[in-house]
Structure formats: structure tokens, C-alpha cells
């Protein structure tokens, strides 16, 4: 029982999964569009949350929120379930598949055997679509990979019930029905407003543009506080969070620039085009930041003077991002009330 599902590879797992599910039900949309409507862009440096013993730096919103928000903004009826019992979780998945429904699932990367070993860390926010089952094997459309993959049911069960931070608890989600009439422009505007709001006015200093400045202030203190070796590990961790599989490069800034480009055409708002280009430049500057940090990690650049340079680049990025979101707000200001129920 395999569902005829068109697999498209994408950069980011959750927006790719959401876009592929929407396409399956006849709503043509790209990964970037879903990422933007779901308000996926973010920044936070949260040293009190640890991932592999290192502080969390994130460039996107929490796992699950893109699917939820994109669904809500497009007026789509979605459903999600969590389970206590792995057997019940598997039965429900099989029942949905038997009904011809492709099912999104949150999983832990560590337990997925088809991942290259070098990528298998305890990260529990990975999303994929289960599209079929043959005997004891699931057929999976994992948007990170070029082709659909197979996975033994025991492995998928383990991955769905991975433990630790962001434990998926067998979470599955799927689309129940699409409305007859979808207002894409309205969804796009809400998505942009959401990103501007969290990036400019999140009340905690670790998130949004203030989070970038916070990280800049912390980075310069690392060599004295942590010693050279730990500092290098901390820097490397930021680069991995920014460039790891699933970001599309530049900490999601390139995906967002692609979204703004599409949004300009779909909402007939030419003011978004130069903003898309600025977002690309911001992405390039994040790449340069990562390149310099990686050079330090590899011993190609001296730690102490370079850390100050890295902090300065972050401060510049904070200024550039702040002005981008402010200009985005004014570019969409005219649309803000139209069509709100």
C-alpha cells in the first residue's frame, strides 16, 4: 500500500514536508513560500538550553510551528496527534496510510538508518512524510534526500519515540481538508508580519535582533571565560546550527529571500523585491561569518583578534536585519487590515 506521492527534495525538512503535503492535495506551493507563510525565520541564542553540551543557537522557530501556522493562515484543516504507546502510534499510522493519507512525522535523526553516519546526532526535530508500508518497511519521503527512502518499522518506531530535548512522542500530523478558496496574499502578509514582530519586539533579550547583539557581546568574552578549546567548540556549534543540512544556507536567510521574491509576485507588491535582495546580502554576510568562524576552528586564523571581528560582523548583521524588518513592515503596511475577519 504505497501512496502515489510526488517527492520533491528541499532544503529544510519541515517546510519541505508541509509544501509536499500541500502539493499532494493540489495546492501548488514552494518550500520557500511555506517557510515564509509559516513565519519560520527567527534568531535566538539561548545559552541555558544545551544541545550536545553546547549552547543553543537557532535561526528558525520551534519545530512544528511552520506546519501549524502555515495551516492556520491558509485556512487548512490539519490534525496532529501524540502518543504514549508506540504500538498505538504505529497502528494509527498504518490506519491512515491504508486510507491513502500521507502522514507527516517528527523523528529523532539519531535512529534513522538512511542518514549518513556523520549526521546522526541526537536531534529530535526532524520531519518526514510516511507514504507507504511494504511488509515490515516504511516508504518515506524525507525532503532532505533526493529520492524516497525505506526504513524498517522498528527503526521508525525508535525515531518517533526518541528521548531528550524536543522528544517527538510519536507526533504525527496530516491534512484533513483544504478550503475551496485560499487567500495566498493574506497568508503571506500574516507570515511576514509575524516574522517582523518576533524579530523586532520579542520581549526577551536572547531572541530576535537583540539576540544577535547578545551573541556578539558574549562571543568576545568566550576566550577568557571558556579557554581556547571550548571557545572553538562553541564557535563551531554556531556554524553547524547555521549551515547544517536543512537551512538552505546562511541560517535560512536565503530561503527567506526566495520567499520574499515569490511574495512580491503573488501580492503584486514590487517593494518586496529590493528587500529580497537585501535579505540575500544578509545571508551572504552570515556565510562570511561562518567561513571566518570555521577558519578559526581549523586553526587558519588567530582566535583572539578574530573573535572581535566576528562580534563586529554580528553587530553589523543585527543592524542590517533590524532595518530589513522595519522596511518590510512599512512595505506591507497598506495590506494590514484588508480582508481580516
Amino acid at each position: 500500500m504505497n501512496i502515489n506521492f510526488s517527492h520533491r527534495q528541499s532544503a529544510h525538512c519541515e517546510s519541505g514536508v508541509t509544501a509536499n503535503l500541500l502539493n499532494h492535495y493540489g495546492l501548488e506551493c514552494s518550500e520557500a513560500l511555506v517557510f515564509g507563510i509559516g513565519g519560520g525565520l527567527f534568531f535566538a541564542y539561548a545559552p541555558f538550553i544545551r544541545l550536545n553540551f553546547l549552547p543553543l543557537t537557532t535561526f528558525r522557530t520551534a519545530p512544528g510551528s511552520i506546519f501549524k501556522k502555515a495551516g492556520k493562515r491558509l485556512g487548512i484543516t490539519t490534525r496532529q496527534q501524540r502518543f504514549k504507546n508506540p504500538v498505538a502510534a504505529e497502528q494509527e499510522l498504518d490506519r491512515l496510510l491504508a486510507n491513502g493519507c500521507p502522514v507527516g512525522a517528527q523523528t529523532g535523526v539519531f535512529w534513522l538508518p538512511y542518514f549518513p553516519p556523520a549526521y546522526r546526532f541526537h536531534f529530535n526535530g526532524h520531519n518526514l512524510v510516511v507514504i507507504g508500508k511494504e511488509r515490515d518497511e516504511y516508504l518515506i519521503s524525507d525532503p532532505i534526500f533526493e529520492q524516497p527512502v525505506r526504513c524498517a518499522s522498528a527503526d521508525l518506531r525508535q525515531a518517533r519515540f526518541a528521548k531528550g530535548a524536543l522528544a517527538p512522542q510519536g507526533r504525527i500530523y496530516y491534512i484533513e481538508s483544504l478550503p475551496g478558496n485560499i487567500d495566498l496574499s493574506q497568508a503571506i502578509i500574516s507570515g511576514i508580519k509575524d516574522v517582523c514582530r518576533v524579530m523586532l519586539s520579542t520581549p526577551v533579550p536572547v531572541a530576535g535582533v537583540r539576540g544577535i547583539n547578545f551573541l556578539a557581546r558574549r562571543i568576545v568574552k568566550w576566550p577568557a571565560r571558556l579557554g581556547e578549546k571550548r571557545t572553538l567548540q562553541h564557535l563551531g556549534h554556531i556554524v553547524r546550527m547555521q549551515e547544517e543540512i536543512g537551512t538552505g544556507g546562511g541560517g535560512f536567510r536565503f530561503i527567506y529571500a526566495a520567499f520574499l521574491q515569490e511574495a512580491a509576485a503573488l501580492t503584486h507588491n514590487a517593494a518586496l523585491l529590493p528587500l529580497s535582495q537585501r535579505c540575500t546580502v544578509i545571508g551572504d554576510n552570515w556565510r562570511e561569518f561562518a567561513l571566518l568562524a570555521a577558519r578559526v576552528c581549523k586553526g587558519r586564523a588567530k582566535l583572539v583578534p578574530t573573535v572581535a571581528d566576528l562580534a563586529q560582523r554580528l553587530e553589523e548583521l543585527a543592524v542590517a536585519e533590524k532595518s530589513l524588518y522595519q522596511d518590510l513592515q512599512s512595505a506591507i503596511a497598506g495590506y494590514s487590515i484588508k480582508g481580516r475577519e
Binding site: V239, E243, E244, E262, Q277
Partner: peptide, 21 residues
């Protein structure tokens, strides 16, 4: 100036930090 999706086998900045981990 239009965005497109390109396949990449990797980037050394990323490989270096992955190796470091």
C-alpha cells in the same frame, strides 16, 4: 537574479565544524 534550488555536495566551512564535533 531569480532564486533557484541548487544541489551541493557540501561546504568546507560546514565540513570542518562537523568534523570538529
Amino acid at each position: 537574479g531569480n532564486y533557484s534550488l541548487e544541489l551541493s555536495v557540501g561546504w568546507e566551512a560546514k565540513n570542518a565544524t562537523l568534523r570538529q564535533a
